[in-house]
Design a binder for these strands. Structure first.
Lengths: 128, 128
DNA sequence: GAACATTACATGCACTCGCATCTAATGCAA
DNA sequence: TTGCATTAGATGCGAGTGCATGTAATGTTC
């Protein structure tokens, strides 16, 4: 177990995460009124492309259940997604994207991609 | 510019960051009463090994200046570091580690290393 | 079916963060 | 020296997060 490699990888992750998060927050926020978490959640919903249980989202996004609940609430307030109770299990809530949500996502996607390209393209694959 | 690689790298960073941060927060917090930021700052101070300006710390840690200021305030309150005014530039503040701080850091280091090893050792170098 | 455990999601709370701003010290120009 | 810009660090504030807990629906055991 190469400790130096492990720590090096951790520092790489810390640096890239900080830089990317900061840039995404700025770019997505200024240009599209979305935070990184909002974008991430929209992204998952769009790619899943059918109604999605909050619970399923929870597994895919790196957020606590409570944080996710609030992100969805914010997205719903902005009318980018709609919530509804599950018919099968009335404890459950499904989320689906609205037309406005899809449009917003599609507008924001190139911005996100540009930020990531800027930050990761000059970064060669993490190699020993 | 391979978009798939860029996005893949980003997802890797997101996943590892979330997992590591969560584990560090839990382990360092429960076992040593330190948050990840506190540990990070102690780490930099110990490695620099002579008095360090807040400003210098700011460049090395992935925190805003205000967040750093508060982390140092917390560490000082816990008597793990001491603050003092710079003699050369009396706007400046230098930070040095106390004996208790060094001890705490040395206790916490193996915990941090164990967490990182657990998370990154099974992760081969990010390769295309 | 009554009582209790579990699950899904929402919410109160405390905490950390970044941004904007404040204070104090320094640098610089006239 | 005076006046103004800049820099170092602290702080008020709003926002987002996780943990613990609350509420309601479901499952389970007797």
């Amino acid at each position: 177990m190469d400790e130096e490699f492990v720590v090096g990888t951790w520092h790489y992750v810390l640096a890239k995460h900080a830089k990317a998060m900061c840039a995404l927050e700025r770019e997505l926020g200024d240009k599209h009124g979305l935070g990184p978490s909002e974008f991430e959640v929209l992204d998952r919903i769009v790619r899943h492309d059918k109604d999605l249980r909050i619970q399923e989202l929870c597994d895919e996004v790196h957020l606590s259940q409570s944080a996710l609940s609030r992100v969805v609430a914010r997205l719903e307030k902005a009318e980018l997604v709609a919530r509804g109770v599950c018919h099968n299990d009335r404890r459950g809530v499904f989320v689906c994207i609205t037309d406005a949500g899809r449009t917003r996502y599609e507008e924001a996607l190139p911005t996100q991609r540009a930020v990531l390209a800027e930050i990761f393209s000059d970064a060669p694959a993490l190699a020993r």
